[in-house]
């Protein structure tokens, strides 16, 4: 994919994250002020895990956050005047880390949603 498209995706993912991460931060870090109950208590975790809307939000959050973050790291490393081969190696590592994060995170979100926990 062209660099300009990757950059546009970085901007787009940033804009989406403003909304999704905003929701996540409010639920997790303003729980006492908004009287939502302890967000880290098992009961709350289980209720979010079993909710379809939360599962979708978490999957999208994972996808956009991993892309946005790893593209940012890649851009930063690319500034060190790497050779073409060096850039390919960095890109490869970033893609592998991204895939592992997506597979592991995606598995945890979907398996958590499907599991019959109580």
């Amino acid at each position: 994919m062209k660099e300009s498209k990757l950059w546009s995706l970085h901007i787009f993912s940033g804009a989406i994250l403003l909304i999704l991460l905003g929701i996540h931060m409010v639920i997790m870090h303003f729980d006492k002020i908004l009287n939502l109950g302890d967000s880290l208590a098992w009961k709350s975790v289980l209720s979010r895990m079993q909710s379809t809307s939360h599962t979708v939000i978490y999957l999208l959050l994972l996808l956009f956050a991993v892309y946005h973050g790893l593209y940012g790291v890649r851009s930063l490393i690319f500034e060190l005047n790497l050779s073409k081969k060096g850039r390919s190696v960095v890109s490869f590592i970033v893609v592998v880390v991204g895939l592992v994060a997506l597979i592991y995170g995606g598995y945890a979100i979907i398996a958590g949603h499907m599991a019959k926990l109580s």
């Binding site: 956050a65 991993v66 973050g69 940012g72 930063l76 592991y104 995170g105 945890a108 398996a111 958590g112």
Partner: peptide, 20 residues
């Protein structure tokens, strides 16, 4: 801050994976 957040994200995925 971006670097801090991406490092945390990877640890966060590992820790929250325990819920399953």
């Amino acid at each position: 801050t971006g670097l801090g957040i991406i490092l945390y994200l990877l640890m966060h995925l590992y820790v929250t994976g325990f819920k399953i």
